[in-house]
C-alpha cells in the first residue's frame, strides 16, 4: 500500500493477485448445472477405476490434482479448497466436472433440516470425550 497519496502503479508478488484469475479455471462458470451446491463438508473420493487422469486431455491440472488428492484419502470440499488454495466456488465447479466424467464421486452429508441419527450423535459425544 502506498501511503503517500501517489497512485499505485505497480503490484508486486502476491499483491498483484493470482496470475490466473480463479474463475478462469472454470472457464467463467460459477456454478455447476448437475450439482446442487456442494456442501463444504461433502466428501470427494476418486473412483477406483481411474488410472491416469493426466492422460485425459480434457482435464485441467487442477482437475488432475483433485483426482490424485482424493485417490487414497477422501477429502472434504473445504479441505480441497484449502489445499489447492482455490476459492470454494471454483472447487465446487471442478468437482462437478469430475462427477460428470465419473472420475470421482461425492458422499453427501446429512441432509439439511435433519439431524443425524441419535446413535451417531452419541458416538460424537463419546468420541469428543475420549479425545
Amino acid at each position: 500500500m502506498s501511503g503517500d497519496g501517489q497512485p499505485r502503479d505497480h503490484w508486486f508478488d502476491d499483491e498483484a493477485g493470482p496470475v490466473v484469475r480463479p474463475y478462469a479455471m472454470t472457464r467463467g462458470r460459477t456454478s455447476h448445472a448437475a450439482q446442487h451446491r456442494l456442501d463444504v463438508i461433502a466428501v470427494v473420493l476418486t473412483e477406483p477405476h481411474v488410472a491416469d487422469p493426466e492422460a485425459d486431455q480434457t482435464l485441467s491440472p487442477e482437475h488432475v490434482r483433485i483426482v490424485e488428492l482424493c485417490r487414497d484419502t477422501p477429502r472434504s470440499v473445504a479441505e480441497l479448497a484449502a489445499e489447492l488454495d482455490l476459492p470454494l466456488g471454483v472447487v465446487r465447479v471442478l468437482v462437478g466436472d469430475l462427477v460428470d466424467g465419473e472420475l470421482v464421486h461425492v458422499t453427501r452429508p446429512v441432509p439439511p433440516a435433519e439431524l443425524p441419527d441419535e446413535s451417531i450423535l452419541r458416538d460424537v459425544i463419546n468420541g469428543l470425550r475420549a479425545l
Partner: peptide, 14 residues
C-alpha cells in the same frame, strides 16, 4: 487403503 479396496466413506458433521 489396501489396493483395490476403496477407502472408507466417512460421515461428516459440522
Amino acid at each position: 487403503s489396501e489396493r483395490g479396496r476403496p477407502p472408507a466413506e466417512p460421515v461428516t458433521l459440522k
